[in-house]
Simulated scan of single mutants.
Amino acid sequence: MKHFFRNEKNKPTDTTEILFNAAEKIPHHIAIIMDGNGRWAQKKFLPRIAGHKEGMNTVKKITKRASQIGVKVLTLYAFSTENWKRPDTEVSFLMQLPVDFFDTFVPDLIKENVKVQVIGFTDQLPLHTKKAVEQAIEDTKNNTGMILNFALNYGSRSEMLEATKQIAEQVKAGELAVEDINEVVFEQQLMTTTLGEYQDVDYMIRTSGEERISNFLLWQNAYSEFYFTKVLWPDFDEAALEQAIGVYQTRHRRFGGI
């Protein structure tokens, strides 16, 4: 089965041709706000949790395809620091999802050579969720392919506040001079520092038609390209990902230049 991207004339183009001729235009770091699970379920007269369950199946499909295309890091906004405000039953289900997801998908991740990482305030997660995450990280630590980076109990403002506090402590302890604080020093305190050269996001995708960042990787998204689609996350399949990347390949990133 062939897969296609859309070129600048919106005509289908064979994926293999695009990858061969423009491999450098594959975004190294894609970040996705997986929005629309609840609305997907509502449209089908199902409970919201059914949407979240189907959304995890989409994660599996998109992870595999992104890895095959050549993406280096795929960061998925799985649970924000604000999501605790949702009904207790929904939060409990969301906290169980990583357990079920990794229980069934880790063998595939190993087969695909995908490495699991997590950013967020994981110390605040329920014990069973935290254990599942830590086990997945351990099981895939030797993989050398794409990094599947889950943002779990993550909020960008809190991340930057914590980074600021850590730098302040270094200054207070005499380990760092104020005049030596720069972007590199700050980035070293962010949760994404383990991503190394791929710390900055190249392409930020949000599904469901909403057009906002929602406290997601505010620093890392400084120069990323944005793509908003009305497709609800459970319906965002491999072809939708390819179409999004096709749009990315038509853009010219200037980084403040000409």
Rank of each mutant, 00 (worst) to 15 (best):
V178Y: 06
D200P: 00
L176V: 02
V185G: 09
T193C: 02
T192F: 05
I205H: 12
Q220L: 05
D202M: 07
K172H: 13
V184N: 15
N182W: 08
I213C: 07
V184M: 13
L217W: 08
F186T: 03
L176W: 02
E197F: 07
K172C: 13
D180V: 01
I213S: 05
N182F: 09
L195N: 02
T193N: 09
V185H: 00
S208R: 01
V178N: 08
D202L: 08
V201C: 04
G209Y: 03
D200A: 10
V185A: 07
M204K: 01
I205P: 11
I181A: 06
D200H: 08
E179A: 14
L217H: 04
M191R: 06
R206N: 10
M191P: 02
D200S: 09
G174L: 04
T207V: 06
L217Q: 07
N182T: 10
L218P: 03
A177V: 05
I205M: 09
M204F: 13
R206P: 09
F216V: 10
V185P: 05
F186C: 10
M191D: 00
I181G: 05
E197L: 12
E187I: 03
A177F: 07
R206D: 12
I205V: 15
A173K: 00
V201K: 05
F216I: 13
L176Q: 11
T192E: 04
E197Y: 08
Q220V: 00
M191Y: 15
V178P: 02
W219V: 14
Q220N: 13
D202Q: 06
E210Q: 14
I213Q: 10
F186R: 03
R212T: 06
V201W: 09
